[in-house]
Design a protein around this nucleic acid. Structure first.
Lengths: 175, 175
DNA sequence: GGGAGATGATTAACATGTTAAGTGAATTCC
DNA sequence: GGAATTCACTTAACATGTTAATCATCTCCC
C-alpha cells in the first residue's frame, strides 16, 4: 500500500504553533467543485420548482424515462442517491402517482419501479425548459470546453475510485 | 435551440410514445460535478468523522483560521453556506466552545465570530491527515491536471455568473 | 425624530445527505 | 432442511440544503 513517503509533502509548515496555512481554502478542490455545481444548479432550480420538483425528484423521474422499469438498488446507482434518500423520495413520488411500484418476480425483497403516465407528462412539461437552459450553458461556456471538463471530471472520479481513504487508519482506536 | 439531432443518440429506445431522450443523464454536467465531488469528499469524510466534524463544520473552522474574526454574513460567503445552515452550525460550534461570538461594535445586528483555542487545537489535529489525503489525490490525478481542472471550474462559474436563469419566465403565472 | 423600508441574523418548515439499526426474504452451509 | 448469514430495502436519528417568514436593528427621508 502507498502510505508513507507522504510525510515530506508540506514544506510550508513554518515552525511554532503556526496555524497550518494549507490551500487558501476557497481554492480547494472540494470547494471548486461545490461552487461550480451550485452555479449550474442555480440555473435549473427555478424551473424545476415551478413544476413542483426538487433536483433529486427530477433526477429520479429522468432516470426512469430511460427504462421500462428498474429495481430500486439500480435506480439508486443511476440517480446517484443513497438508499434512504431514495426510499423517502419514492414514497412521495408514489403518493403523487408519478411513479408505480411492484415487487420483483423471483425475489420478494426487490422492488421494481417505473414512471407513470402522469410522471411522463410532467417530464415532458419540464424537459423543454431544461434543454434550453442546458443549451444556454453550453453556449456560454463552449461546447468543446464543456466536453473537456466532463472528461476531466470523469478522469478524476476514476483516479480516485480505488483509493481507500487515508483517514481510515485512525479508526482502529475504537472497537 | 439544439434539440433535434439528439434523436439518434439512443438507438435502444424502441419506437412508440417517444420519451424525450436528452443527454444520457449520467453524462449531464450536474451529475458529473456531483459524482466528482462525491469521489473527492469520500476521501475526507472518514477522517473528519473521526474528529467529530462534518464537512461543513470543517469548512467553517477552516475559514476561521485564516482570519482574526469575521462577520457572519462574510463567513457565509467564504464558507459557501446559506445563512440558515450557518446559523445552526455556529450555534452548535459555540456550544462546543470551538468558536466565540460577539456583537459588532457599531451595529448590533451584526455578529462577529472567531475560532477559539480549542477550535484551533482541533484544526491542528485534523489538518495533517487532510493534507496527506489532498496530496494523495493530487499525486493520483496529477498536479498539473488538477490545476487545469480548477481553472476550468472557475471559468464555468464565471461564465454562468450573470446568467439570469432561463426558467424564470414561467413564474409570472403565480402571485 | 419618528415612521417606512432596508438589512443582518435567526427561526420555521420541509426535503435531502449520511450513518446506523431494523425487517423480512433469499442463500449458504453444515 | 434449518440455523446463520447475506441481501434489499426501509426506518430512525441527526445534520445540512433551501425557501419563506420573523425579529431586531439601522437608514433614510420628510
Amino acid at each position: 500500500m502507498a502510505r508513507k513517503k507522504l510525510d515530506e509533502i508540506r514544506p510550508e509548515d513554518d515552525a511554532s504553533a503556526r496555524r497550518t496555512p494549507m490551500r487558501e481554502f476557497s481554492r480547494s478542490l472540494p470547494m471548486s467543485l461545490l461552487r461550480a455545481r451550485e452555479a449550474v444548479m442555480r440555473q435549473f432550480r427555478p424551473s424545476l420548482r415551478n413544476h413542483g420538483l426538487t433536483e433529486q425528484q427530477w433526477r429520479i423521474l429522468r432516470a426512469l424515462t430511460a427504462v421500462d422499469e428498474i429495481e430500486v438498488t439500480e435506480l439508486a446507482r443511476v440517480a446517484f442517491l443513497l438508499g434512504p434518500s431514495l426510499s423517502r423520495i419514492l414514497r412521495d413520488l408514489e403518493a403523487r402517482a408519478l411513479i408505480e411500484r411492484r415487487a420483483a418476480e423471483n425475489d420478494a425483497r426487490r422492488a421494481v419501479v417505473s414512471i407513470s403516465a402522469k410522471g411522463l407528462k410532467l417530464i415532458e412539461a419540464v424537459a423543454p425548459t431544461s434543454e434550453v437552459i442546458y443549451a444556454a450553458i453550453t453556449k456560454r461556456y463552449g461546447a468543446r470546453k464543456l466536453a473537456e471538463l466532463q472528461e476531466m471530471l470523469g478522469a478524476l472520479e476514476a483516479s480516485l475510485a480505488g483509493m481507500g481513504s487515508a483517514g481510515e487508519a485512525e479508526v482502529e482506536a475504537e472497537d
